[in-house]
Simulated scan of single mutants.
Amino acid sequence: MTVKTDVVIIGAGPVGLFAVFECGMLRLKAHVIDTLADAGGQCTALYPEKPIYDIPAHPAISGADLIDNLMQQAAPFAPTFHFGEQVMQLTRTEADTWRVVTSKGTELEAPVVMIAAGCGAFGPNRPPLDGLETYEATGGVQYFVQRREAFRGKKVVIAGGGDSAVDWAISLAEVAARVQVVHRRPKFRAAPESAARLDQLAKDGAIELVIPYQLAGLEGTNGVLSGVIVETLDGQRRTLEADHLLPFFGLAMTLGPIADWGLNLERNQIAVTQATAATSAPGIFAIGDIATYPGKLKLILSGFAEAASAAHAAHAIVHPGEVVHFEYSTTKGVPGGA
């Protein structure tokens, strides 16, 4: 059965969630689709406990708390969420609306679609190690840190030389029994102050830098990780005792089916009109990191502004001819508000 709504929002990250609020303020009903099992996008998948410093009125807020607040802000407008689903088909109907079909067979029809898919579908770059999937299934190998407390008292091996590897090594050194960082060279590709902090922790004995080594294998029984094998370029090997391996080799990004929707693309981003976030297709908008235009700043707050612009442009499509008298939220309020 096809469900009709005003707006289908693809992506439940911070920008997609704020789009629910902005649409709701204009009496536009929204359905939200996301491939992940919960709301938050990269905020919850990559840095739920790390502070974000450039959200207005929040000197610092964790990714998880930001998403919680945005969910509360969207709640009065009763959005319908479809988690764990990917949009597979997007087709124009004879009624000049859009038909959306997901990987689980959900069918939606709406005059407006907002794409807030961040960088598209993303997943970790996995190291080519035998038996990797077995240890992934048991949590011995993890690519994201969602709860720092889960590593308290554990022996942790971190592989990589970028910001994620360095930042989490510094953070987990406070709770883990031991942290060892495997990298193929002494120089790290991290923020200078973070690299300096890592170096100091190594000098203090709080972290061991296993350099110059790279991952070579895994050891364990019945999926329970017990050791990580590393080796140098000339074949010297070591086995590091480990309860967990955290490989931070970046993310593999892909637009997935979005690339086949006939939209104007520029280097894996969707070109839009800055004033409205409109794409080259009627009724389709792109907001957040996936959208591009001259002078674009890839910031969450830029995405928030784009969500507001797109919602107002969407209102003219859903309610043609109806004049919107702009009101501040302080005077308009929200459903159920004081």
Score class of each variant (00 low, 15 high):
residue 177 A to W: 03
residue 154 K to Y: 02
residue 249 F to E: 12
residue 141 V to P: 04
residue 269 Q to I: 11
residue 172 L to N: 13
residue 202 A to W: 01
residue 217 G to I: 02
residue 237 R to N: 03
residue 188 F to G: 08
residue 180 Q to H: 05
residue 164 S to F: 04
residue 206 A to S: 02
residue 162 G to D: 04
residue 218 L to R: 13
residue 206 A to G: 02
residue 215 L to W: 07
residue 249 F to A: 14
residue 260 D to M: 12
residue 193 E to T: 13
residue 251 L to N: 08
residue 133 E to S: 09
residue 259 A to H: 07
residue 143 Y to E: 10
residue 238 R to D: 04
residue 220 G to T: 06
residue 238 R to M: 08
residue 196 A to P: 02
residue 152 R to D: 02
residue 225 L to F: 02
residue 219 E to C: 10
residue 208 E to N: 11
residue 238 R to C: 01
residue 201 L to W: 01
residue 156 V to A: 11
residue 195 A to Y: 01
residue 171 S to G: 11
residue 248 F to I: 14
residue 150 A to E: 07
residue 235 G to K: 11
residue 156 V to H: 05
residue 216 A to H: 14
residue 192 P to I: 10
residue 141 V to D: 14
residue 225 L to M: 03
residue 150 A to K: 11
residue 162 G to R: 07
residue 217 G to K: 11
residue 273 T to Y: 01
residue 175 V to T: 15
residue 262 G to N: 01
residue 165 A to F: 05
residue 171 S to W: 04
residue 205 G to A: 05
residue 248 F to M: 09
residue 162 G to K: 09
residue 264 N to C: 09
residue 216 A to Y: 01
residue 245 L to Y: 00
residue 133 E to K: 06
residue 188 F to E: 11
residue 164 S to K: 00
residue 269 Q to D: 00
residue 264 N to H: 12
residue 205 G to S: 04
residue 229 I to M: 09
residue 255 L to H: 07
residue 142 Q to T: 09
residue 209 L to C: 06
residue 142 Q to E: 09
residue 201 L to Y: 08
residue 193 E to S: 15
residue 205 G to M: 02
residue 135 Y to N: 08
residue 261 W to A: 14
residue 235 G to M: 05
residue 185 R to Q: 10
residue 252 A to K: 15
residue 152 R to Y: 00
residue 258 I to R: 13
residue 165 A to L: 08
residue 240 L to E: 06
residue 264 N to T: 15
residue 220 G to F: 03
residue 189 R to L: 07
residue 163 D to L: 00
residue 147 R to E: 04
residue 244 H to G: 04
residue 162 G to N: 13
residue 212 P to C: 13
residue 252 A to N: 07
residue 168 W to L: 12
residue 175 V to S: 04
residue 223 G to P: 05
residue 269 Q to H: 15
residue 266 E to M: 06
residue 182 V to W: 03
residue 181 V to E: 00
residue 178 R to I: 12
